[in-house]
Amino acid sequence: MSSSNRSRTTDWQLTVEARARRVRAELTDLETVPGTERDRAAALMSLEVVDAALHARDRWLHAIASWWSGWHIERAWRALHEAEIRVEAAQPDLAGRLPGLRQRVASYLPEDDLRRRALESLQPSRPASSVDRAVVVDALRAAFDATDDAHGGARALRNKLIAAAVILFVINTALGVLGLVRAGFIPMCAHLPEAGEHSSQLTVCASGGRLPGPADIWLVQLVGAFGAIIAAVVLLTRRRPSLSPYVLIGYQALIKVLLGSALAVVGVLALSAGVAQGLTCITSQSALLLWSALLGYSQQVGTRLLDNYADRVMDQVRPLPETTVHPR
């Protein structure tokens, strides 16, 4: 493989390539087993599809469309799974592999699934018949279909996160530009505590002045993003590694930062309107910026639900474990 190809190899490609090599090794062993020609031919055709998907090099426009649709990832996994199914069905020692196959199927099929029940009813103590092999094929295909379909769900969630991030970025940018053009249109200021007859008119703004300035919204967004980054760091530290072809954690962190910026602006605007009067005590610019950071961190309340949903999706798309290889 050339250096340019190596630089574009990702974790999911390494996993698929490793499993494809394992399938080819199994096919080599099956060459001396009579009656396996049809399964070996089907497995080789699937491996050709895997190779084409792994080494596809499209032009940048097609590469973006491919990345968005995920066709090369899902096509490679589906073809690899079909090759693995064909190899398992042709194994002469299939009866001895049943415990490992049951473990793989149990990860994705519920206990009341008839295909899983049929697989669990097979006896490893006797040689596998053609009916037993058909049961194994159906059960494995159902389990692989479940994880392959979950890939589509993870891709759809990733694309939604990207779309939401773009919308939030546009909104934050528009608010910042509006603050530059009309500084007082969205005041990022708060009333100081009463200390005299006319003190209710005294305010402090995000940039430190008594009147709204063009940098107020940008400063509030920056401090709000800092508060959200703290929540994003917590997310990164608690997330376990995954070999899933779709990685969502970066997009989740981006949503937190952008949403934190937006909520900081909305929150300071509420403080300026006196919505939280009596609940907060803002006496200086530092206090106002501190509230901006806290408001930015408050996005964690809403994005926590998103994090939990993303965790469930990622659990479903993890690759099925390999079958235990028995000595021949």
Rank of each mutant, 00 (worst) to 15 (best):
A83C: 11
E197P: 05
V49Y: 06
R8G: 02
S261R: 06
R40K: 10
K160V: 10
S2I: 09
V233S: 07
S272Q: 14
A150S: 11
S46E: 14
P187V: 05
T36G: 09
T32A: 15
I229W: 13
G100F: 01
A231E: 08
R155P: 04
A190I: 08
A20H: 02
S207F: 08
I73F: 09
A52H: 12
E74S: 15
P241G: 06
A63W: 07
L306A: 14
V33R: 00
T280N: 00
R126E: 15
S4W: 08
L279M: 14
P241F: 03
Q221V: 08
V204P: 05
A128Y: 07
H191G: 11
T10L: 02
I64S: 08
G176S: 13
E74G: 04
V204H: 09
A163V: 03
A76I: 00
R240C: 00
R304A: 07
R158P: 00
V137M: 11
D307V: 01
D311F: 04
N5A: 14
Q285W: 02
G208V: 12
C205I: 09
V50E: 07
A190N: 07
V268K: 02
S129W: 03
A293K: 05
R97T: 10
L248G: 09
I230H: 01
T9A: 12
V131W: 06
L254I: 00
L192Q: 06
G267C: 12
S292N: 10
V181N: 05
S207K: 05
G296S: 06
D138N: 13
A134I: 06
A195W: 09
R155M: 12
V177D: 09
I255A: 15
A276F: 15
T203R: 15
D138I: 02
E111R: 13
T303D: 03
A276C: 01
P110N: 01
K256C: 12
S261Q: 11
A128T: 10
T32M: 08
A164T: 12
G250H: 05
H198G: 08
T9W: 05
S69Y: 01
Q277T: 09
G260Q: 08
Q316F: 04
Y251R: 09
D315P: 00
Q123I: 00
D11G: 13
G227E: 04
Q299V: 15
V317K: 03
V223D: 07
Q316D: 15
S7K: 06
A20P: 01
V105D: 05
E48D: 14
L259F: 07
V166A: 14
T15Y: 11
R133T: 06
Y246V: 00
V50R: 00
P327N: 14
Q300V: 15
Q299S: 13
E26L: 10
G179Q: 02
R86A: 13
R240P: 00
G184V: 04
L288I: 10
I186E: 01
G302Q: 05
A143T: 09
P187I: 02
T10H: 04
Y251G: 04
A83R: 03
V247W: 09
H62W: 12
T237W: 10
Q103A: 15
P124M: 11
R40C: 13
R6Q: 12
A228K: 07
L254N: 02
R38I: 12
G302R: 01
I217T: 13
Q13T: 02
V325G: 01
G224L: 01
I64L: 12
P212G: 11
R22N: 11
C205Y: 03
A165W: 04
P214M: 04
A52Q: 12
H55Q: 06
